[in-house]
């Protein structure tokens, strides 16, 4: 048995199933079979973070993550972050701080910021830059991104 295989997983809180070819990456499966384009491949080698996906709560590069490994896992993408029409406070903060131009890198930055703030609720610049070192923004919105992270941190702390 060495062809495609069926996997099941939880996708943004709902049960999901896919038929996955050998070596297919998680980002390809999400894009091609679920029309989820928030995680998108850019560098294709783990460096830029545009393909960030949460697997069992941990951030991974979807471009290097074998989709077969997602069998049985809980997968979360940017599409599952908002609560219906209400944006997540991190998404609001990115909008308010103008933390993007083209927006291509934004889903990755936002998911990484979620993990960053879970680990460091009140991060300083160094912590932010270090945690996000593997996320690249071609439009170089870095100052605004750092500001957005701080704004989101404050909001989330205030909300308790």
């Amino acid at each position: 048995m060495s062809g495609p295989r069926d996997i099941t997983f939880t996708l943004n809180g709902r049960p999901a199933a896919a038929t996955v070819k050998p070596g297919e990456t998680l980002v390809d499966v999400l894009t091609n079979q679920f029309d989820l384009t928030g995680a998108r491949e850019s560098c294709a080698q783990g460096l830029c973070g545009c393909c960030t996906v949460l697997v069992d709560g941990d951030a991974v590069s979807g471009c290097l993550y074998m989709a077969w490994f997602a069998d049985g896992a809980e997968i979360n993408t940017i599409e599952g972050l908002a609560d219906g029409n209400t944006l997540h406070p991190i998404q609001e903060a990115f909008l308010e701080a103008g933390a993007f131009q083209c927006g291509f890198c934004t889903p990755g930055f936002i998911l990484m910021t979620k993990k960053l703030l879970e680990a460091h609720p009140d991060p300083d610049d160094d912590v932010i830059r270090h945690f996000l070192v593997g996320n690249l923004c071609r439009c170089a919105a870095y100052p605004e991104i750092v500001a957005a992270v701080k704004l989101a941190a404050r909001r989330l702390r205030d909300a308790g």
Binding site: G46, G49, V60, S61, L64, F131
Partner: peptide
């Protein structure tokens, strides 16, 4: 680890 790859690679 501070200068090795990034969070996502280190997670895996």
């Amino acid at each position: 680890m501070k200068t090795l790859a990034n969070v996502r690679v280190r997670n895996v």
